[in-house]
Design a protein around this nucleic acid. Sequence first.
DNA 1: GCAATGCATCATTGCGCTAAGATATGCGCA
DNA 2: TGCGCATATCTTAGCGCAATGATGCATTGC
Lengths: 353, 353
Amino acid sequence: MEPNSKPKSRARRNTQRATMLDVAHLADVSPSTVSLYLRRPEAVSEKLRDKVKQAIDTLHYVPNRIAGSLAAARSRTIAVVIPSIANSFFARTVEAMQSISEKAGYNLLLANSEYDLKREEELVRTFLEWSPAGVVLTGCDHTENTQGMLASAGIPVGQMWDLGSPSLGLQVGFDNAAVGRTALQHLHQGGCQRVIYLGVRLDVDHRARYRAEGYAAAASASGRHAPCIIDLPNNEHIVQEAGKAIAAAMASDPLIDGVICSNDSLALGVLLEAQRRGIRVPERLSVVGFGDLDFAECTIPPLTTIRPHRQQIGRRLMEILIERCESQDSHEWPEQAIDVGFELIPRNTTRII
Amino acid sequence: MEPNSKPKSRARRNTQRATMLDVAHLADVSPSTVSLYLRRPEAVSEKLRDKVKQAIDTLHYVPNRIAGSLAAARSRTIAVVIPSIANSFFARTVEAMQSISEKAGYNLLLANSEYDLKREEELVRTFLEWSPAGVVLTGCDHTENTQGMLASAGIPVGQMWDLGSPSLGLQVGFDNAAVGRTALQHLHQGGCQRVIYLGVRLDVDHRARYRAEGYAAAASASGRHAPCIIDLPNNEHIVQEAGKAIAAAMASDPLIDGVICSNDSLALGVLLEAQRRGIRVPERLSVVGFGDLDFAECTIPPLTTIRPHRQQIGRRLMEILIERCESQDSHEWPEQAIDVGFELIPRNTTRII
DNA sequence: GCAATGCATCATTGCGCTAAGATATGCGCA
DNA sequence: TGCGCATATCTTAGCGCAATGATGCATTGC
């Protein structure tokens, strides 16, 4: 074999997909014109525009976003971490975020932390490997590492569903403690003398805990009764458990005449138990839920609850986040906290005086 | 300015993040050793392994998966399209898929098609731009284009929640028509003489439609009564609407003594309406739901329903899909359909003779 | 009539990494 | 001692594209 002066080309993995170069050849233009056409069609003359368009169509060309992201040193991806996909609260918010981001040409990388901050940290670490354009977390509680990684990533970060500290730059949510206060106030106004709070896994569901704390502080301040918080463990049969818990509480303290539930599912359990035991709602026991889930308005009696603006949170957060992603200039990212509020929906499980 | 023989380097966007080269320099090895260490640590000697590990730690090096994916011509991403994120059926399945894929080092790109096949097509098109390692769709109904794009993408595709044709290679689900048949049989065995089917948006929710069709075929075959399907429009107040619908149906045909619901939420509406009107369940009206949602076992009376194996679907599908992604050899991807079945959970809204 | 200007198009470089193939190193065995 | 072989490490060439700055070409102003 004669010595070859030039090393011959290596075996390359072939991707068989059409590339921009293929399009360029077919359209008889340079690759950069194709690139330009895809990014800013108005900057290309109409004549070439048509040729390129046709070439793309005949080749069924699909741009390779991975290559694009590498070249541009930024990807059109937004990483979202929520505590639980199955929780319909977050699902609606994610849905809204998806719809906004999609319009702007961004895709969502999604994962759930299972209410575990350490897991959230791992997820953020993994997601950062994709150099996402932005990151969305749930709530304000994050590990030091999570905060550190995000800070040094230099990308816009959003927090949703809660307001508080530390802020990572942009928060869209509501004051969870105020939810607890509002619910208690509503029950007191309806004549309740002793209101308890019923929650699930308040140790890990920080937002529910803030609601409980808001309730507790308001109860103490009201001077009517001491706060009492029941914290149920997570459970497949949580709806039933809620019923048992309220029955037990009322048995041990017959003066209880109001209950604030961490979410509507618990409230449903309470209502069903009341029905089973012939406890009159709201006269003997008033109930406030949280979430305004689908079934809330058709329980018996219809459930008084608090409605967070699930979709609005996702929409506004994503709108601002994308704006920040586009601006690329982190000086234009002032710390911002948007309180979208919540709404008390008085129905028939509470009295209105 | 004198003519320069070599063009000087252009201004480059700088990413400031540590790169593999930085790690290599610090560890005093070649970049490919770092790369190898990250991909197959066991192939690197212990001495170098430690040096590289230390360098990575001190630099807080985060590998750039985008560059990696480009070089390897494949990404560790799996695209998932579900009809609705907010639907807790799919949420559980996605949760299971996420947990499996995460362990294998894959990330999920997620989007919802809103039960629109055209939208699904658009999503698939967009997702393919990321050259995902695999794609997961819901159900068997897809546009020609969707099928074409996926076929020519040369990556493993999974379909979940239904079995049928066309198969795109791997299906994990159950026979939805059999669900309808099973529910009807159960009601007939309990003594029902006239059973109707209550659904929502059967035109777009193909799987619910297959269940309805299974019911219809079985009703006709039984010779007891003609099938009757009520198809409600989608609606915020669907639970209430379900109640109204069943009341109207029973008013116009008093012989109706059984109803099969497309999902447990509808069933809940039916039960609440029955309670409101004093219709005894199951004696006067038997009810079967679908989904076995959280509240199903604590409705009054506890709801007889059909439980799909939501998590199992996600788990098995993802396990096989990832296996196929790793194999890289599409000849090892035989057409496969796994029926994970479903389970009738008899509770107290139906009679058992 | 010629420079100055604006605009459309192009050539070129490298984003950070993987993986093929080349080279070095160590080991067993004749 | 020397050869073959296996294993560890390195050199190198792109992956497909974005974006920089250069080039060509038409238009305008003086």
